[in-house]
């Protein structure tokens, strides 16, 4: 057990050095780093005095899945919704790549950010295909192109093409969630916000949705902010996990492994629940070595990436807002 740990921290240090190298290289070239989301002293206080988010500082790395987790009423959803201005902060600044989100008008901002919610929120009056093509239509793509893109996404998220002309009520909950994910991906946004997207379906469907989501993300390398109340889901999906506690305070922000190995306080330990050792074991068993290294030691700098997708990702950053029709990188 002890040697195990030593080997891992060595791998991590090595990885970290490489990652740093990667960062300096890309910033040195003076190009855009990616879609880094930062919260700087952000507070959200509602009219009735309740504080949903309390003085939050958070840096969400690019190209990774960052999970916001906590009990209900902890402000995780409010935090998520401040990124696409569904909620505006009372104090502080939310920025994407250093630009305050409030410098853009909300519709324009939102068209460049994917958004998936718990009940999928599919439009009942539109066919599946037209649901998925919503944002491309809003952006003024021509119909043919928007539909072709929607068909391609149906395939990516594992939906039978025969469903294209069906309506949402004819789909199961799991299928609806796939449509929700496809719809958010349609304009190839560099950022995806996902608010409990898999919590309304049964455990078996949830697991398959999670697995496919990870597979898809391995290809797409989006900057994903994912809200859940389920700590197991957080550990399974997150490169970084932000644990919130009631009152909108950030209790701990670290990698899944660090979180399991060293919860900062009693609240976090409680929230993680029993069998932490077992969870940690499972966590490692489910990841391949490379991925595990990335998700256990990375300190949260922008752009660290051991996977082969690193370079493609830098190029992909240009397709903000989907003005370009290049298909998702790597497909």
């Amino acid at each position: 057990m002890r040697t195990h740990r030593w080997v891992r921290s060595f791998a991590v240090s090595l990885y970290f050095i490489l990652a740093l190298d990667h960062i300096t290289a890309s910033t040195g070239a003076g190009e855009e780093v990616g879609r880094l989301i930062t919260f700087d002293g952000v507070t959200k206080r509602y009219a009735d005095g309740t504080v949903a988010v309390d003085d939050l500082d958070l840096e969400i790395p690019t190209g990774r899945i960052t999970v916001l987790v906590g009990p209900s009423g902890c402000g995780k959803t409010t935090t998520l919704r401040m990124i696409n201005r569904m909620v505006d902060p009372t104090d502080g600044v939310v920025a994407i790549d250093g630009t305050d989100v409030r410098s853009k008008n909300p519709p324009e901002l939102r068209r460049g950010i994917g958004y998936v919610i718990q009940q999928a929120g599919l439009f009942p009056h539109r066919t599946i295909l037209n649901n998925i093509a919503t944002v491309p239509y809003l952006l003024g793509w021509d119909k043919k192109k928007a539909r072709a893109r929607a068909r391609e996404l149906m395939d990516s998220v594992g939906l039978d093409p025969a469903m294209a002309s069906r309506y949402p009520y004819q789909l199961s909950g799991g299928q609806q969630q796939r449509v929700g994910v496809a719809r958010a991906l349609a304009a190839d946004p560099p950022i995806m916000l996902m608010d409990e997207p898999f919590s309304a379906v049964d455990p078996i469907v949830r697991k398959s949705l999670q697995d496919e989501f990870l597979r898809l993300q391995a290809e797409l390398q989006k900057t994903i902010v994912f809200v859940t109340h389920d700590i197991d889901e957080a550990i399974k999906l997150g490169h970084k996990i932000a644990v919130f506690q009631v009152g909108g305070k950030l209790a701990q922000y670290s990698t899944p492994d660090e979180l399991l190995a060293g919860p900062k306080d009693g609240f976090v330990a409680d929230f993680l629940g029993g069998e932490r050792g077992l969870k940690r074991l499972r966590f490692f068993r489910e990841l391949d070595a490379e991925e595990a290294a990335a998700r256990s030691g990375d300190a949260g700098g922008p752009g660290p990436d051991g996977g082969p997708g690193a370079d493609e990702k830098a190029g992909e950053g240009d397709t903000t807002g989907g003005s370009d029709d290049s298909p998702v990188g790597g497909r």
Partner: peptide, 27 residues
């Protein structure tokens, strides 16, 4: 009209009138 649907419409970047005419009225 389902709150989720309106939320999704806004979240995808529809303006107020777009939400009304493209989502709320048909539904």
């Amino acid at each position: 009209v389902d709150a989720d649907i309106k939320d999704a419409a806004r979240g995808m970047g529809m303006t107020g009138p777009e939400v009304l005419f493209k989502v709320e009225i048909p539904a």
